[in-house]
Design a protein around this nucleic acid. Structure first.
Length: 277
DNA sequence: CGGCATCCCTGGGAGC
DNA sequence: TGCTCCCAGGGATGCC
């Protein structure tokens, strides 16, 4: 589930408690995630001071004052919980980190991931440029490098369909299966259209729609955390106002056509074949 | 190399 | 109630 807006929302919530907070304890219950968690996480993270987290694509990065980075990737089913007070370990909790804030409050941060497609890593900041997961990431869709020129360059001589293009993390970092459908609906472009059939106007629409949809969802996530922080501390899931994803057989908001569900690269894809060409 | 199918893993819901 | 099948929001890998 977690795409850019959800990861951004988790980052925002974490940043409220991670601002020169000290790691007082760390427990790892299961190391065999998408990759095996490095042994140094357990030994080296203790007593480190955690600074404000930030996001890169779908990755959460938490710098320490000792020049390290704590990295989380939520995969398909990962969540992060933030809790104050006692916490009883739950099924699929893999990593539990206790922290003490600057003003002496205690919190527990829990990484839970049933399918274990996610990952947790801890490494020296000098390795960030060549980190095997981070080095291949493309531009940030909310950043200034996400331009028509950039897209044109990346599309050159490519034949894949625009939906797969948007979801390619080495081109644009952070868009997943849900938001790819939502963005193309907003841009009135068929997910099946191949990128060599996109003109400048299409690219402009894609950029505008991407920024609009992602920002709107981040705002919704922020609101959801303020108003509906669940008692179990669970973050990363919030009610999204989706217009096409999961809406097959219901009516398109813009015309009287019916939203259809198709399969692209083995992923569910929803669109209006009337509005989206 | 690009594009696509397959696989990793667990759980939930539909259908019988 | 229980079984089977299919599906799930990520992404690496291997094959053609």
């Amino acid at each position: 589930m977690p795409e850019l807006p959800e990861v951004e929302t988790v980052c925002l919530a974490l940043s409220k408690i991670l601002n020169n907070s000290e790691v007082s304890n760390i427990e790892i219950f299961r190391k065999d995630l998408r990759w095996t968690i490095n042994d140094n996480l357990e030994t080296d993270l203790k007593e480190k001071i955690l600074k404000k987290p930030y996001r890169r694509g779908k990755y959460i990065l938490i710098p320490t004052s000792k020049e390290h980075i704590l990295l989380f990737h939520l995969g398909m089913s990962g969540t992060i919980k933030i809790l104050s007070g006692e916490y009883k370990v739950f099924k699929h909790d893999h990593v539990k980190i206790k922290i003490e804030t600057e003003d002496n409050n205690f919190f527990t941060i829990v990484y839970n991931d049933p399918r274990r497609f996610g990952y947790v890593d801890f490494f020296h900041i000098s390795k960030i440029k060549n980190h095997f997961l981070l080095k291949k990431l493309g531009v940030e869709p909310l950043g200034k490098d996400f331009t028509i020129q950039y897209l044109q360059k990346k599309m050159y001589n490519k034949s894949k369909c625009v939906k797969n293009f948007l979801m390619d993390q080495s081109i644009i970092a952070g868009i997943g299966n849900i938001y790819a459908s939502e963005i193309l609906y907003e841009a009135n472009i068929s997910p099946l259209r191949t990128v060599d059939k996109l003109n400048k106007e299409h690219l402009k629409s894609i950029i505008t729609a991407t920024k609009f949809i992602l920002k709107k969802s981040i705002n919704a996530g922020g609101t959801s955390i303020r108003n509906h922080l669940q008692p179990d501390g669970n973050l990363g899931y919030f009610v999204q106002k989706l217009k096409v994803y999961g809406k097959n057989k219901s009516k398109c908001n813009k015309c009287n056509n019916v939203i259809v569900l198709i399969n692209i690269n083995n992923r569910s894809t929803y669109y209006c074949s009337n509005c989206q060409r």
